[in-house]
Amino acid sequence: MSGSLRSREREMGVVILDGSTVRAFVGDEEVFNRSVDERFAALDLNGDGVLSRAELRRALETFRLLETHFGVDVVTPPAEVAALYNSIFDQFDLDRSGTVDRDEFRSEMRRILLAIADGLGDFPLQIVLEDDDQGSNLLQQAVDLEAAKTKAAASGK
């Protein structure tokens, strides 16, 4: 087995999730925008109101896109890594300005989450989500929103 193992210090949680949960989260404009805006602000390290390639890449690296199997990293040539991250940045940078503003970030996160919802379909699945330090896991927030709505409905509020 090539590659290196990285220790996982973060905790994991198991949630039940389906496409309707994610679609409801995206459809709740206020909650969705607040959640995505908080994530955007956390990524905007220099506070200039836009994400640079370096800021977005730093965030993408936390997703471990090049990980193939449970913590084992693939040895990928640097040119391929750069091409992957540049391609993803280009998806976010809708106006080709060289930066990603809050509206572009919202738009792409909406598109990504709706694609995840479509992929999940309507059958509930158990999914392991990694807890993050900032509470910014959008799928976890979708589950939390559904749980809050269910609890409110059950208590008659």
Rank of each mutant, 00 (worst) to 15 (best):
E38H: 08
V22I: 03
Q140S: 14
S52K: 04
G156V: 08
T62Q: 11
L56D: 01
F105T: 00
R8K: 11
V81K: 04
G71I: 03
T62Y: 06
E108S: 12
D48F: 02
M12R: 13
P124M: 07
V26T: 03
A59G: 09
P78K: 07
E11I: 00
R10N: 12
L51N: 01
R53M: 13
E55L: 03
F89E: 01
R6N: 13
M109W: 10
A82D: 15
Q126E: 14
E80F: 13
L139H: 02
G13V: 15
V36T: 02
N86S: 15
L51W: 00
M1T: 08
S87C: 06
D103C: 07
I88H: 07
A115L: 06
A83I: 08
K151I: 00
V14T: 14
P124W: 02
T99E: 05
H69N: 12
I127S: 11
L17A: 04
I127N: 08
A59E: 05
L60P: 09
F92D: 01
L120P: 03
V26Y: 01
E9F: 14
F89T: 02
E104T: 09
L125H: 13
N33I: 09
L60G: 06
A117S: 03
P78W: 04
G121F: 06
R8T: 09
L17S: 02
V74Y: 00
L17Q: 02
H69E: 13
G49P: 05
V75P: 00
T68C: 10
V72Y: 09
R58T: 12
E80C: 10
R96S: 14
V143H: 04
S136Q: 14
P77V: 10
L51E: 00
D101E: 04
A83L: 11
T68M: 13
V81C: 00
F70T: 07
V31L: 09
V74W: 01
M1C: 07
F32H: 02
S155K: 14
R39L: 15
E108M: 14
D144I: 04
K157V: 15
L43W: 05
E38M: 12
G27T: 04
E108Q: 15
R34Y: 09
M109V: 10
T21G: 07
A148G: 04
G27E: 04
